[in-house]
Nucleic acid binder design. Sequence first.
DNA 1: AATAAATAACGCATATATGCGTCAATAAAA
DNA 2: TTTTATTGACGCATATATGCGTTATTTATT
Lengths: 82, 82
Amino acid sequence: MPHFRWVINIKNVEVIKAFGRRLRDLRISKGLSQEQLANEAEIPLSQVGRIERGEINPTLSTVYALCTALQTNMKDALDFKL
Amino acid sequence: MPHFRWVINIKNVEVIKAFGRRLRDLRISKGLSQEQLANEAEIPLSQVGRIERGEINPTLSTVYALCTALQTNMKDALDFKL
DNA sequence: AATAAATAACGCATATATGCGTCAATAAAA
DNA sequence: TTTTATTGACGCATATATGCGTTATTTATT
């Protein structure tokens, strides 16, 4: 059965969703498929999808790898408001 | 015994260490102790220490919580070069 | 020096990100 | 439509971040 045993921090959900949207925008603006981005960033394809959909909370190193693959700075990739 | 069974991505080590240094600088510039920052960000004190020392690879939501507690944007907190 | 405050360095349980699959659904191109 | 490319949505094992302790060490204060 599904659980609600743990407190959900709404802000945290929002930040990973906002980053997912930003990542997708950046990827598309660079004309890359998820697969190409995954290869560049050396991250599994399925993980890129989950991050773009805001399903997982990526680590700093993953964020960095994605930004590097997109030829952007974390500074710019994380420049969004909630 | 210690292991070397997995490939270590040097860049990833560098980014978490750089963030740790940046976090410490920001915290000190705001005149906060690790304990005060931990309370503000609602994360364990020991975790703040490990992050500042670059021992762990924080998630995006943790980075966000720390930046918010420091009254900074991720944009600025992650504005560093490797 | 003695005391207090701050940080380092551990341990441990649990939730979850990662890494690597597979197959379905959708979109794009032929 | 049919084929191909792309993305979504799963499953599962493993490494690790989180969360919450405790104790040691270092630093600051008196």
